[in-house]
């Protein structure tokens, strides 16, 4: 396919990009979706990101009753904070001094997308999915996280209808911090389990 040199921002479509445009146009023509619905869904997903998860974690650190609800039914807890997570059965697993949790989907790339946004490339990679179930401590070490021998690792493989998020431990030195400040130290990687919050 030739490039249009007169219009700088245009470039030849790949076969798959051509397929995307074609599929979308056909579906719009048939009334299956509308262009507007596609645009809105793109923008909706763009707005979803780890910030929401961080707010949930911060609230759990500050509010024991919310923490209890979060661990019992993660979806209802998010909704209680005004965070809509459609089609998501969220299970929150808490890190403790005895256990550190890490999430994976070995079969594809299941992830709590409606809460945390689109997952990072590495989470979907063959290397992560193959190795974290078999040598979690080595994989965490590659992320710069060393888990002490006396702490058990709990790997969660999301094979079915639940979606998982880690509730990290609140680090020492955060006494008196407000929700916003606490949320600022909770990264996406902390909620997947390959990092822990740092002050």
């Amino acid at each position: 396919m030739a490039e249009r040199s007169d219009i700088g921002e245009y470039q030849a479509l790949t076969y798959f990009q051509l397929m995307e445009v074609s599929l979308r146009e056909l579906l719009v023509e048939k009334g299956v979706v509308s262009e507007q619905a596609v645009s809105e869904a793109v923008e909706d997903m763009r707005r979803r990101g780890p910030d929401s998860g961080a707010r949930v974690v911060a609230r759990a650190w500050l509010d024991a009753e919310f923490r209890r609800l979060l661990l019992e039914n993660g979806t209802r807890a998010c909704e209680a904070m005004g965070i809509e997570v459609p089609a998501t059965r969220l299970v929150v697993v808490e890190n403790t001094p005895q256990a550190h949790n890490v999430i994976v989907c070995t079969l594809c790339s299941c992830y709590p997308r409606m809460l945390l946004g689109i997952p990072p490339d590495w989470y979907k990679s063959r290397n992560y999915r193959s190795r974290v179930v078999r040598e979690p401590r080595a994989v965490l070490a590659e992320f710069g996280l060393r888990i002490a021998d006396e702490v058990a690792i709990r790997v969660h493989d999301s094979t079915a209808d639940m979606r998982y998020m880690v509730l990290p431990m609140r680090p020492a030195g955060t006494e008196g911090w407000d929700a916003a400040r606490l949320a600022s130290i909770v990264s996406r990687d902390c909620m997947i389990g390959v990092a822990v919050p740092k002050t």
């Binding site: 590495w122 290397n127 193959s130 974290v132 590659e142 493989d157």
Partner: peptide, 12 residues
């Protein structure tokens, strides 16, 4: 795919 030999996780 779990457990198959694979390389280092590149955090890309």
């Amino acid at each position: 795919m779990g457990g198959l030999p694979a390389g280092r996780v590149e955090a890309t």
